[in-house]
Design a protein around this nucleic acid. Structure first.
Lengths: 212, 212
DNA sequence: GCCTGGTTCAACCAAACGGTTAAAGACCTG
DNA sequence: CAGGTCTTTAACCGTTTGGTTGAACCAGGC
């Protein structure tokens, strides 16, 4: 399959546009985003957008496709094999939080698409599934295996994965709210993110570990 | 203080408009929403919007203020006193998930505002705080007290509350994605929500309970 | 009936927006 | 420097969108 990174053969200008578009779409949504705002953010003339990307729909589709691929790959990419389940969980949380942190705009765009109904999302996932890329079941399987092996309590793997994803993601989604309600997060967001990794592992690991 | 429900003295038509606006703003965002779409959803003429609410900004502000109040109140409203921490947690999860389920549009609007930068949000919170409504610290205090009493492990109350909120909220935010990745959620969403309550309590309770 | 208040609507307007174009600029090749 | 290609731009066009207005409608009181 072709690399999901459709930006590899982009020129400097194209990349500027792409990044700006991702940013604006992520903030304002596909409908709310103005082509002028994207042009301004990319520091180019508005006509350039239409030179490199035919129209708004094309630009959005390209940005969203890249984002969706990036996102689907992130689950498996963050999941590295480790001797114990505890280590596997720790590495996944660290990796996934880091991924979201360095792809905040991608994450926001994904949420925008969900808020808007997620029609493009289903389409994209079906396309990816048809071309052999299975959705991220590996993480679910890992949990299921750990249950089977008695390494963790008998929990529902699907729900558990959803809970892990939720806790790793949502505080980025609600970053403004979090920063208002929790001043330390405003003063030093990076430190807050690191502290959060520790807390999440601690909470979830103890939530899953067996009881004697 | 005045009741946060600014809709109490609304006429039938006003309420229709308000509900439609909330829905459209929640889906499309404050900028993406079209006045025509709101009018259509409310099943009235476009000019009526401007008769009852001066302009788009006013309409949005009114809708958002209501939503923000509703949301801030929901934390405390879902927190009922119970003899043990376990029961308190269970009741809170049930109540909060139910609140979000029956106020999905409110929740989506809140997320939209966060994605857009959350400027109005900070403004709103500052106004509420100044007028005596403290942000929901009660939940944080409950956790802190339980730690103090040795009912649960020594965890960071702020992070813990954020984790609880995340898990109760995010699966509603990402409902389309969840339904694609987990077919049972598509077939019977209500049942999925109920199952999720059980899972969340189980996971978080065991995550917090002391170890011998 | 007819006036008077509050509602509802179709038609309209100006501004904003997505998208086009023709021409100028930059840059290489000969 | 001449010719040609690839970039970049300002000005422009048609449509959509937020917002206005004046007329129709529909009570109820006189």
């Amino acid at each position: 399959m072709p690399p999901p990174d459709s930006r590899s053969d982009y020129s400097e200008t194209e990349r500027q546009i792409f990044d700006a578009a991702l940013d604006v779409f992520a903030r304002e949504g596909r409908r709310g985003a103005r082509m002028q705002a994207i042009a301004d953010a990319a520091d180019i003339n508005k006509a350039m957008l239409h030179y490199y990307f035919r129209d708004k729909a094309t630009l959005y589709e390209e940005v969203f496709t890249y984002t969706a691929c990036q996102f689907m790959a992130s689950f498996d990419a963050s999941l590295k094999e480790a001797p114990t389940f505890a280590e596997t969980l720790r590495v996944f949380i660290d990796g996934y939080v880091d991924f979201v942190r360095s792809n905040e705009a991608c994450m926001r765009l994904m949420v925008q698409e969900n808020l808007a109904g997620g029609t493009l999302l289903g389409q994209q996932m079906r396309k990816a599934t048809d071309s052999g890329d299975a959705p991220p079941t590996i993480l679910v399987d890992t949990i299921a295996d750990a249950v089977q092996a008695g390494e963790i309590r008998p929990v529902d793997p699907d729900h558990t994965v959803l809970s892990v994803i939720s806790t790793c993601l949502y505080f980025f989604v609600a970053q403004p709210t979090v920063q208002i309600m929790h001043p330390p997060a405003e003063e030093d967001w990076e430190a807050f993110v690191e502290a959060r990794k520790d807390h999440l592992f601690d909470l979830i690991y103890h939530g899953l570990a067996p009881r004697e």
